[in-house]
Write a protein that binds this DNA or RNA. Structure first.
Lengths: 346, 346
DNA sequence: ACGAGTTAGTAACACGTGTTAGTAGAAAAG
DNA sequence: CTTTTCTACTAACACGTGTTACTAACTCGT
């Protein structure tokens, strides 16, 4: 008698069907190029259904060297994750694509301190077949380690000087599009608040796009109007506060993250400034809140779910060895969403 | 020579240290009540470090019957997940607690169609040791199945008529607190927009709390001012639109979800109504956006991260068999956060 | 009738670990 | 000197599956 009454193994199915365990495996996995009589097939399937047999995923993983799970690795602090308005879309996109391939998603989190080691813990333990790194911030050593590691990895967001596969948007071009729109409305004194600290590559890229737009229009960039936020509404609030306090004059602001723009907007309101009458406000990301903001936020739409889906597909290709390990770069398009937070300069 | 060059097993460690595989296991797992000489211990640890040995999680899981992973099961549609402003906090709370116990989190998603079977797929395959159900919506059959199943389960949000362990707030009392605050401000015609359809138990509970507050104040509930939204800002927008169109008069609105309130607020603004001067608006949840809303939203704070952490701890206790399977109910406190979206009736 | 091929299935190994039962050798006890 | 106890370790099994190599029995062409 079995120790755990309610644990059904393939041996139990074999016994009930009156065949060998091998046959059970061959039938249930529908192995091609092997001859099993239709009656036996039927008996096995019948027995499996009767017992409610579900193969043990761990045992399958052990022998097949495939866990059928991928890791989503978040590389931010506790607090950043909790306030990330973008995460649900990433997860939603990942879930839909993963389900199509019958793959599970394991979510983990790397504190910046233990970066180098922690990245590999899951993969080395063969808990996952590959991983997706979200908004990575890596030093050269970590990049090298990842490149030489055996674990398939895809980044959401690119990193300068790395040949690792990634899925991203063209941050420079997107930000340039945003800033150019403000310039086109006649603004010449434009503030810029980044989405994140410069270590996160998307941040300097978006600021660069902002610079490009101004430079192309023959406008000198006022460095005192450029400021780096830190993902959260709080940081946006603080940045905008500091900007207002500095006394520098500006008629528009480009905030490279809607989430940060939430805070920046609150600071403007506190200062008694109206949007867009006194200051035009341009966001970035198009999080769900943006269209319901007051006024509805003009922003750059980042295809978050598509990004996640592409990353997932790319990773699955890598795992199956279909794609090359290097030079797999996918760039998705962004879109300027004009709403009501920007207005031509009087 | 090994097939996969870069795969290090305990056998390799044993060979290098000149001991048996058993000894390696005993040393590295620090098994108590067994005698191993300090020199041998040192040799093993040295060898393991040298080779960068990491035990195979799947093999460990197979033999120990513990995967050291728990499942977070989301029970909503694709679109609801993507726009859920609450999810990041849940995940953040789960990640921190899980990390303390060296547990991984597997995230999965159950479409309402395949409910009954899909719930168990992960657990039956022994991919996870237990699961957390988020905002469950279950029929009686599914509850029965869960209660009789062998897989430890904790719900975030309770279900009427179920003895399953859960972590929740007192929705009735919290909503009553919110509505009573509006009543206290002198409002008598108050609209109510739920957070979700009635099938999700929190929705009718919050509406009930709303009713209680009015009844206790001797105010008759106008059923035409009660309306059920569907998690998203869109649904809140539509509800509020319908309410305005109905011609029923109201001076305040209780929206049982900040996320829904985002949309409701947009509809009010579109109608030219000012908050709080024309209509007072009360939310529920205190998502990060709430305090930066314009005006800052008065709401009920749901301790999202604490909820997730408690659920995680409860589940881990269940898995270790320390707690009883039934009658494990944790209720956390809510808090009325007064900001500026509500105002005394003129 | 007889080797060759086909059909329908099975025994046995591998995956990498945790753990129980057991064993040499040394020390202690009688 | 023998017996017992203790130390420090190891051989062997178990977990549940996928897969390769093998084998009886059966068919078929000559």
């Amino acid at each position: 008698m079995p120790l755990h009454r309610n644990r059904v193994t393939s041996r139990d199915v074999a016994k009930l069907a009156g065949v060998s365990r091998t046959t059970v495996s061959l039938v249930l996995n529908n192995v091609q190029g092997i001859q099993i009589s239709p009656e036996t097939r039927q008996k096995v399937i019948q027995a499996a259904n009767e017992l409610g047999y579900v193969p043990d995923a761990m045992a399958q993983a052990l022998v097949s060297r495939r866990t059928k799970a991928i890791g989503l690795v978040l590389t931010r602090t506790h607090h950043h994750i909790a306030t990330d308005a973008f995460l649900p879309k990433i997860i939603s996109g990942l879930l839909t694509t993963a389900r199509e391939h019958n793959i599970r998603i394991l979510i983990d989190w790397v504190e910046t301190q233990h970066q180098e080691s922690a990245y590999f813990e899951l993969a080395r333990a063969k808990r996952i077949d590959g991983m997706i790194l979200s908004t990575p911030r890596l030093d050269d050593a970590a990049i090298k380690a990842l490149e030489s590691a055996e674990v398939p990895t895809v980044m959401m967001g690119s990193i300068a000087g790395s040949m690792l596969p990634f899925v991203d948007v063209d941050n420079v071009q997107a930000a340039e599009k945003a800033a150019a729109y403000l310039v086109g409305l006649g603004h010449r004194e434009i503030a810029c608040i980044s989405n994140a600290p410069p270590e996160y590559t998307a941040a300097p890229e978006r600021v660069q796009g902002f610079r490009n737009a101004l430079t192309k229009a023959g406008i000198a960039v006022n460095e005192r109007l450029v400021c780096y936020a830190d993902f959260t509404p709080e940081s946006g609030y603080n940045c905008m506060k500091a900007l207002l306090k500095s006394g520098e004059r500006f008629t528009a602001a480009f905030v490279a993250s809607d989430n940060v723009a939430i805070g920046a907007k609150a600071a403007l309101r506190e200062a008694g400034l109206r949007i867009p009458d006194d200051v035009s406000l341009m966001g970035f990301d198009d999080i769900p809140w943006a269209m319901y903001s007051d006024p509805p936020l003009t922003t750059i739409r980042l295809p978050a779910e598509a990004l996640a889906q592409q990353a997932c597909n790319l990773l699955l290709g890598l795992i199956q060895g279909k794609e090359h390990w290097e030079n797999n770069h996918i760039i998705l398009e962004t879109e300027l969403i004009v709403r009501k937070s920007c207005k031509a300069r009087q």
